[in-house]
Amino acid sequence: MSGDPQEEADLDAAWGAALGEAAAAAPAATPAAPDAARELNQAEIDSLLGFDSGSDRRAAAQTGIERIIRSGLVSYERLPMLEIVFDRLVRLLSTTLRNFTSDNVEVSIDSIASLRFADYLDSVPLPAMLGVFKAEAWDNYAMAVVDSPMIYSVVDVLLGGRRGTAAMRIEGRPYTTIERSLVERLLNVVLADLTAAFEPLSPVVFRLERLEVNPRFAMISRPSNACVLVRLRVDMEGRGGKLELLIPYATLEPVRELLLQQFMGEKFGRDSIWETHLAEELRHTEVVLDVVLDEQIMPLGAVLDLRVGDRIALGVAPGAPVRLACGPVGLFEAQLGRRENRLAVRIERALPRGGRPGAAGAATQVTEETAA
């Protein structure tokens, strides 16, 4: 460092000017008063609430993996005949509810979906009434859910409410005995139509067992079991609501093969033209009937030693009944006789299908020649 007094003076002046500018800018950088209003930005709000700004990007990146995992948990199958059954239910229910309510009722299907039983219970809009019913022939259970707007609409219609006005909803209280009784009558009507809808496919009777208002008391299946959910919308001139039917796949298992088949019209998979043609062709089919006089068990060596002119003694007396057989199946018991110059048999009775099988045609030839 040089000892020139002029240079030292210039340096001191420069440092002094710099310090003066810093002191002048200091008041502007002082923090605001504690009572001053301060707004949080989106990043600070996400941090306080426990969200991360990059969570959306990560969720989008994991969407494919989540779909693969979820698709591997439960494999749902499409049941074509079940859709026809519910279409028939809608037609029946529209007419039945018109007679039940004496009002103009329109019933339509919102959706038919497959989901887990626990997922549906978590999504039930409360308050609602859950009707547990049993399929008698299939020995298993299903569930019908009536939401709150539908309950109040049915009560209003059946108790003489004016048309064209929405039903009054009083939330925050349990359902009364009258409301439960009217909903029970509604569910009995729906189950009767559901029984009629399944009648062409498989005879079954659906019987209502109980009404629940808490989904925890309506556990008819394991939480992870697959179910079919049918959402029905009921409109009654400005009033109405939703009616949902939840049927586990385990309940439909006895008729699973019938629900998987294709269909033609209302015959539910049957073709009457082909059935008639097949029946006519079967009646014209030719079959060979064997007259079995007797059956004997012989060693193979004795059969190989048979020569022309050898005789085989029958173990039956003359006039004993013979059997008529078609292949290995015995059909009738008959008496052997003669008509003009031909041998003939007269059928006496039918043999049970579990009877002894008939003999071969070659054995019949030998025994007939011996009898002659």
Rank of each mutant, 00 (worst) to 15 (best):
P5V: 08
P5K: 11
Q6H: 12
E7A: 15
E8A: 15
E8K: 15
E8D: 01
E8Q: 13
A9Q: 04
D10M: 08
D10E: 03
D10W: 02
L11W: 06
L11I: 10
L11G: 01
D12N: 10
A13T: 06
A13P: 00
A14C: 00
W15N: 11
W15D: 07
G16T: 08
G16K: 12
A18R: 10
A18G: 02
A18S: 04
L19Y: 05
L19A: 14
L19W: 12
L19F: 09
G20F: 04
G20L: 15
A22P: 00
A22E: 01
A22Q: 04
A22M: 09
A22H: 06
A22N: 02
A24I: 03
A24R: 11
A26Y: 10
A26P: 00
A26W: 09
A26T: 05
P27Q: 11
P27A: 14
A28M: 08
A28T: 06
A29K: 15
A29C: 11
T30G: 09
T30Q: 14
T30C: 06
P31V: 07
P31T: 13
P31G: 10
A33S: 14
A33V: 05
A33R: 14
P34T: 10
P34N: 07
P34Q: 10
D35E: 07
D35S: 12
A36M: 08
A36P: 00
A36G: 01
A37T: 05
A37P: 03
A37K: 12
A37M: 08
A37L: 13
E39C: 02
E39I: 11
L40E: 01
L40D: 01
N41C: 08
N41F: 08
N41H: 05
N41W: 01
Q42M: 09
Q42D: 02
A43V: 10
A43K: 14
A43L: 14
E44G: 05
E44F: 04
I45F: 10
D46R: 13
D46A: 15
D46C: 08
D46H: 09
S47C: 09
L48N: 03
L48T: 01
L49W: 02
L49A: 10
L49Q: 05
F51C: 03
F51Y: 12
D52K: 14
D52G: 11
S53V: 10
